[in-house]
Design a protein around this nucleic acid. Structure first.
Length: 291
DNA sequence: TTCCAGGGGTAGA
DNA sequence: TCTACCCATGGA
């Protein structure tokens, strides 16, 4: 007997738009079946993995688990999905600001400005580190190796695995990271974060509901090994704080092409382009139509 | 073979 | 605050 949960997303919500507005859906253990309109991944409920498929029927989101769930697990799963799809974020102010620019409004509409995120900050921190100084193809390969090597198999399945827990990563040790998972020099910071969580020195998940202002959160995030200004800004976005721009080669190239005729731009110039967006800077850049 | 990709850490100025 | 350099990995 499989469980099915129905959620009411915000008006105009589009599952595929929200899933594909940035690349996270391409990183294991997420999978997306565009033809069927189904976003899938295993979720951990009471230390057991459950395969979950999410699809949309009109104004309803249907969450299908591969087995029956007691009420508290169904509620927990619904909470995970609400978090990952940001169903509870109020983006109305950003939407109103987008009305002044038809091209921007068109770019935002498919997703509503909602960017997919992971059920845990641990997973988002690791994946953000995997995006640094590498190609997107390698980021996908590294995430896939991590899940294949250390992820727990979903109940009754051998292929589908969840994202590894910090404990599993910590126990794997340097040798497996170096020979099997191969994150390059990212092995060390990922292992250190995993060990700090597993051994109780770091509580990342408490930051998910933190009331700290973005600058204070930024300070906490850059204190993590392997997390610098770019990763901290990306993680702030993943936490629903859009104040900071994640300055990377993509942003630099975009601002240079669109606003400075291809000339080399300084960080100050890049920030100047989006500064008037205030607490919506990240989204304003992210959905700024490319040229 | 060499370069470099959605950076980070460090040293030195 | 800025620059230069190195850091594993793997594709071009």
């Amino acid at each position: 007997m499989a469980a099915s949960i129905t959620l009411a997303p915000p008006p105009g919500f589009n599952l595929i738009g929200a899933s594909t507005a940035h690349g996270w859906y391409q990183l294991a253990p997420w999978t997306l079946d565009r033809e069927r309109g189904t976003l899938s991944r295993p979720f951990e409920l009471d230390d057991k993995l459950v395969s979950v498929h999410i699809h949309q029927e009109g104004e309803r989101l249907i969450i299908a688990a591969d087995r029956d769930l007691p009420a508290h697990q169904a509620s927990e799963l619904a909470g995970h999905v609400r978090w990952c799809l940001r169903l509870d974020e109020d983006l109305s102010e950003f939407h109103a600001l987008c009305e002044v620019d038809p091209a921007l409004r068109a770019a935002v509409t498919p997703s509503g400005g909602r960017l997919l995120r992971s059920p845990t900050l641990w997973e988002d921190v690791v994946k953000t580190i995997l995006t640094t100084n590498t190609t997107w193809a390698q980021t996908k390969a590294m995430a896939a190796r991590l899940v294949a090597a250390l992820g727990t198999a979903a109940q009754g399945e051998s292929e589908r695995r969840g994202f590894p827990s910090p404990q599993a990563a910590a126990e794997a040790g340097e040798a497996r990271f170096a020979t099997e998972i191969r994150l390059g020099y990212r092995n060390a910071p990922v292992l250190r974060i995993a060990r700090d969580i597993a051994e109780g020195r770091l509580d990342l998940e408490s930051l998910r509901c933190s009331e700290l202002p973005p600058p204070a959160l930024h300070t906490r995030l850059v204190a993590l090994p392997g997390v610098g200004p770019y990763s901290a800004a990306t993680l702030l976005m993943l936490l629903g704080r859009y104040d900071e721009l994640a300055v990377d080669t993509e942003l630099r190239a975009h601002v240079s092409r669109k606003y400075f005729s291809g000339e080399r731009v300084t960080e100050k110039q890049m920030r100047g382009v989006y500064d008037h967006w205030g607490r919506w800077r990240y989204l304003a850049y992210w959905f700024d139509p490319r040229e």
